[in-house]
Nucleic acid binder design. Structure first.
Lengths: 158, 158
DNA sequence: CTTGGAATGTCAACAAGGCTGACATATTAA
DNA sequence: TTAATATGTCAGCCTTGTTGACATTCCAAG
């Protein structure tokens, strides 16, 4: 297998693996979200607000790769529902700094716990070396600007 | 890293890696699809019809994990546009066996080539051992029934 | 040979969550 | 003073998912 790891057939299998794995990856949070009338878009917003507290709307926009109108719709409901807090910037008062409320953090924990459990189980089944390879390939698969965003987030926090 | 590969922080990074990588994974086909007024749903249908020619609607339904109404809408346009062929089953004439026309195969090749190139570059950047780990973790991340479907496809074809 | 159920197709209605375009407002920077 | 930036919001559109209902065709069991 290693001597031909980039054959068309190998690559097609990789494509299918990504497809099916991503379904598993989102399945657990999706089930939780469905019970509270939220969707994946809410999850993504909550995740990155939790991850980079105090981030601005613009930064979140770029991270998520959606339009402000699309994000705004989601963000508005999260703010109305008391999960996300929006504070005017002190230095630049045009900016809104976003953070989770304690209620928001509770939901974030539930969603994250489910997703982390799925990943942890997969990591254990595959082993530490596999995990390293997994991360390497995923990183290489990103667009350059996404890789930068990824590094910005994981280096500061991790 | 290896001694703590399943810490919460490591897992959160894995989650983000999946998120950003999946964006890259779909980016190239998405660009092609946009020029011809198709979406990801069309791509997925085309991919699996190409992969398992002669498959039935029901099998495709289960593979894709959507409702028949949702698939039917996509499939109908593909058939109307002459990319997919639907033949009544010989043994069981309720079934429709799906396959790509030559036009369909052309599009499939374009989409697949773009996506395979992305993956191949990532594989080369990460190396053969990493690829093995990548595949292992992805497989472990799938739901059981998706893993069965995945094996059914890759074992027959690959 | 009838009948139940399976496989498929189709209609209608609805929702989430993307998008574009246009416009308003506040604030900062030139 | 003016231009640019950050944000919010309204309106409308598209894709792609959902449910529910119903028709057709056909296999298979009784």
């Amino acid at each position: 297998m290693k001597e031909n790891f980039d054959s068309d057939e190998e690559l097609r299998q990789g494509i299918e693996a990504m497809f099916f794995a991503y379904r598993g990856f989102t399945a657990d949070p999706d089930r939780i979200l469905a019970t509270i009338d939220y969707g994946r878009a809410h999850h993504r917003a909550i995740h990155f607000v939790a991850r980079t507290p105090g981030t601005t709307v613009n930064k979140l926009l770029m991270t998520l790769g959606v339009t402000k109108q699309s994000l705004n719709r989601v963000l508005r409901t999260l703010i109305e529902d008391g999960l996300v807090e929006s504070r005017q910037g002190a230095r630049d008062r045009r900016e809104r700094h976003l953070s989770l409320t304690s209620t928001g953090r509770e939901l974030e924990k539930r969603l994250s716990a489910a997703q982390r459990e799925r990943l942890r189980d997969a990591y254990h089944a595959a082993g530490p070396e596999a995990v390293e390879g997994f991360r390497k390939v995923l990183e290489a698969m990103m667009d350059d600007d996404m890789r930068r965003t990824y590094h910005a987030i994981t280096e500061v926090e991790g």
